[in-house]
Amino acid sequence: MYGNETKTIIRFENVSKFFGDFQVLRNIDFEIRIQERIVVCGPSGSGKSTLIRCINGLENHQHGNLVVDGVTLDGSSQTVNRIRGKIGMVFQGFNLFPHLTVIQNLTLGPMRARKMKAKEALELGMHYLERVHIPEQASKYPRELSGGQQQRVAIARSLCMEPKIMLFDEPTSALDAEMINEVLEVMVELAQSGMTMVCVTHEMGFAREVADRIAFMDAGEIVECSPPNKFFTAPDSERCQQFLDKILHHEDD
């Protein structure tokens, strides 16, 4: 299965990116296959967020090739527009539209980008709101919901675009401890449904449960990328081992 071109949906080939003089991504070579669940972890500033933000065109890389669902991203809006509708993204800070109700948040994309009729969009929105277990919140405004509920609305909003890939950028980092699980639960269900997922997260329990591979990034490089078993028990690199010691020790506290 490995190396099967037809199954690869995201391919980084020697990708580098700079913010001014600072190199955030260093010669990234990375392939993600359809239905694969990837967890990306690493210390802050290691380039994890930038890596996944390149996939849907929120950031542009400068060197190398990045091919997403058959489209080679070259920084132009044409190529980005071809793929961004197929890629959902969930942000650390939710980024819901505060002036719209929950259901309006969900139907905006389907109606204005996918040109669906209001009634169809409403049905679609309610369908996904049920999937994240909060259909009763449809007519509330984001500020009336808890953080965990808001993040689930954000997941449903992305799903309403019926994406092929879902990106998660530290989806639980802004949440109070008691709300993390309700969001992870929805993400696990999504993973079980066969969605291709790339998650930047430090939730190692989640990584162990659903990840096909865990990538460890440090200083703009993917230092280690292996299945959970190997990743947690026998990582190849020392940097990865040190990182694991720190965060797993922290989790035991």
Binding site: N56, G57, L58, N81, R84, G85, I87, G88, M89, F91, N95, L96, F97, L108, G109, R112, A113, R114, A154, R157, S158, C160, M161
Partner: peptide, 10 residues
């Protein structure tokens, strides 16, 4: 807000 709009293809 712009990034969220970007991801839902607006």
């Amino acid at each position: 807000q712009y990034e969220a709009a970007h991801t839902i293809s607006l």
